[in-house]
Design a protein around this nucleic acid. Structure first.
Length: 613
DNA sequence: CTTAGGG
DNA sequence: CCCTAAG
């Protein structure tokens, strides 16, 4: 809520911001920047820029609002981007009004930050109070939500712009929504109507439960302005309900949406709730659109406009259902939820909606992927608002920017298929690793290891043994070298072949801690590796299996898998050890005793000659 | 979250 | 490797 935090603020930056001051407005170039908690400015990332671009191009409404709101523009900035104020082809006049309003509003709200920008960009001339016209309603409605800080401002600014997302402030959001109202209301932004999704189904009461999947999908489309392939009724209902109500807490079942309210939930919150939430929603919507399908973003927004306009008009009418109006507007316009990464994921991939949900509650707080992606705790630096120094990349989701450590990007689990596109890691990193199997590149274990750990730090638990003979054995064979890229960009772990050294470490670990202590082993030997305890376990299993088969085969004289050059040949010595260990491990009862008495609790067995440690 | 197992 | 069921 407070502006200060890590929100994005903009700095305007063109050479002459002042230039535009006079109405020219066009050529102002803003650079988008994020302000860190500590006040550091961080250049906006492409993503961010992209996000905003949409606004510029796609939405008139937004645009209008955007223009008004200088800050938004700032985002745009490509370094060189000039903002064009209005590109609205359609109804300039309207726009103007809106703009003006917006400006005014903005000014009120964000004078501090933006005023500079606003002035220059915004309408210089009439910034005065447009809002006056229907302030009452708006105010009343809004009043509750507004953030304390803004009170004053809010009153005036009630309807600020839409794009605050950038700034991510709720306040702004509120303002934005309002702004929309105004604009629509007054200006009667009619232009877009046609492009909007069909909301007819959304009007009035909607009993989501009664809808078929198809209908739900339709409703979804209407609500969010984009198609969905999700077939999960529950999910659809929930989502729709959320969209309509702007509320995050929508029961997954039994959703009846009436007048854009979900019945069954607390019906009451409507107005207040709506207000408070809207910005978020809006942002979410926008963001999603952008991410999901840039092309369609426009669509959504347009839709929003329409709706909003309609609704707004109605509002004055009266009390048809004030709530309704609001909802509508918000439904499309403002979507409550702040787009969390998770949220995005959900949206993007239909199939994936799992319930795992860790969601990011708070708006402000940066949410990292890590949470979502990889709960496992890797000691990477905590990404905090303050941390500017790490090599993190900025990511903006839902208008909130967060720093995400590259490393953390990796997702251990199955990749959200659609999610991938959203993250832009280094491209190179992306999939390189995937095709491990084929790579026959021989890497000695060491190499492999290095590579693997390249990104991460290796604890140093190196096994000497490996170096020598193991390698030797390997010699002839190849280790499949896998690309080490994995961690960072790799969204997916797909098969990173085990290197000999890894195997050794594993064996060693088992020897020391016993099979089954995977987490322990992992901690000690693989602490900075992407290998998880499960991986270790799996590998161990494989090793055992291999030890059996391979050894036996060897005895036979047959080389097991010649075919697979890529496969890592595990040196017999290791297999032997594995075998021994395997035999020992399984019998805990037996083992425990023997080991203990020896006094060396740590090393369980070392059967073979490798006396490491 | 960590293990075990199955796929 | 992934996924899931169980502690």
């Amino acid at each position: 809520m407070e502006v200060g935090g890590s929100q994005d603020t903009l700095e305007k930056k063109s050479d002459g911001n002042d230039l535009d001051k006079n109405g020219s407005s066009d050529p102002v170039v803003y650079q988008l920047v994020r302000v860190e908690g500590d006040g550091t400015l961080v250049p906006a990332t492409e993503d961010e820029v992209l996000q905003f671009e949409h606004f510029l191009h796609d939405e008139r409404v937004d645009l209008s609002s955007i223009d008004d709101v200088a800050h938004v523009e700032e985002y745009f900035t490509n370094d060189c981007m000039t903002l064009k104020k209005p590109d609205y082809e359609e109804s300039p006049s309207k726009l103007d009004t809106t703009d003006v309003q917006a400006h005014t509003l903005d000014a009120g709200l964000e004078e501090d930050r933006l005023h500079t920008l606003d002035d220059s960009i915004n309408l210089p001339s009439n910034c005065s109070a447009v809002h006056d016209q229907q302030p009452d309603k708006l105010n009343t409605e809004l009043g509750s939500n507004n953030i304390p800080q803004q009170d004053n401002a809010s009153t005036e600014t009630i309807k600020s712009t839409v794009l605050n997302d950038l700034s991510a402030e709720k306040e702004k959001a509120d303002a934005c929504s309002k702004l929309l109202h105004d604009a629509s209301t007054r200006a009667s932004v009619s232009g877009v109507t046609s492009s909007v999704p069909d909301f007819s189904i959304l009007r009035g009461e909607v009993y989501l439960d009664n809808l078929t999947i198809r209908e739900l999908q339709e409703a979804f489309r209407a609500t969010f302005g984009r198609q969905t392939t999700v077939k999960d009724k529950l999910w659809l209902k929930r989502r729709i309900a959320m969209g309509l109500t702007n509320s995050c807490d929508v029961p997954s079942s039994g959703c009846v949406v009436k007048d854009y309210k979900v019945i069954g939930m607390g019906a009451k919150q409507e107005i207040p709730t709506v207000k408070g939430i809207p910005k978020m929603e809006l942002e979410a919507t926008l963001v999603r659109n952008q991410f999901l399908n840039p092309g369609s973003s426009f669509f959504c927004q347009g839709g929003e406009q329409q709706r909003s306009s309609k609704r707004l008009k109605r509002v004055p009418t009266e009390n048809d259902e004030p709530q309704v109006t609001i909802f509508t507007e918000q439904g499309t316009t403002k979507r409550i939820r702040k787009p969390t990464k998770r949220y995005i994921e959900e949206l993007s991939d239909i199939g994936t909606h799992d319930s795992t949900g860790r969601f990011s509650s708070p708006v402000k707080r940066p949410v990292h992927d890590e949470v979502l992606l990889r709960p496992r705790a890797t000691p990477f630096h905590e990404v905090d608002s303050s941390s500017t120094t790490y090599n993190t990349r900025e990511d903006t989701l839902g208008g909130y920017s967060v720093h995400v450590p590259y490393v953390s990007r990796m997702r251990r689990g199955r990749p959200r298929s659609n999610f991938v596109p959203f993250l832009d890691l280094e491209p190179s990193v992306e999939y390189t690793e995937v095709r491990t199997g084929t790579a026959d590149r021989v890497n000695l274990e060491k190499d492999g290891e290095q590579r693997n750990h390249k990104n991460t730090e290796w604890k140093g638990e190196h096994i000497e043994t490996a170096g020598n003979k193991e390698v030797h054995g390997l010699h002839g064979k190849n280790l499949s070298g896998i690309n080490p890229k994995i961690k960072q960009g790799g969204k997916r772990k797909h098969h990173q072949a085990w290197t000999l050294s890894e195997v050794l470490k594993l064996v060693d670990g088992v020897a020391r801690y016993g099979a089954g202590k995977w987490s322990e082993i992992r901690r000690l030997a693989f602490s900075y590796s992407y290998r998880t305890s499960v991986d270790l376990k799996d590998k161990w299993r494989n090793l055992i299996r291999a030890s059996r088969t391979q050894l036996s085969k060897e005895n036979d004289g047959v080389c097991p898998r010649k075919n697979n050059p890529s496969a890592i040949p595990i040196p017999p010595s290791i297999l032997l050890r594995v075998k021994e260990l395997a035999e020992m491990q399984p019998h805990p009862g037996d083992l425990t005793v023997p080991i203990k008495f020896s006094g060396q609790s740590t090393k369980v067995v070392q059967g073979k000659g490798s006396g490491f440690l």
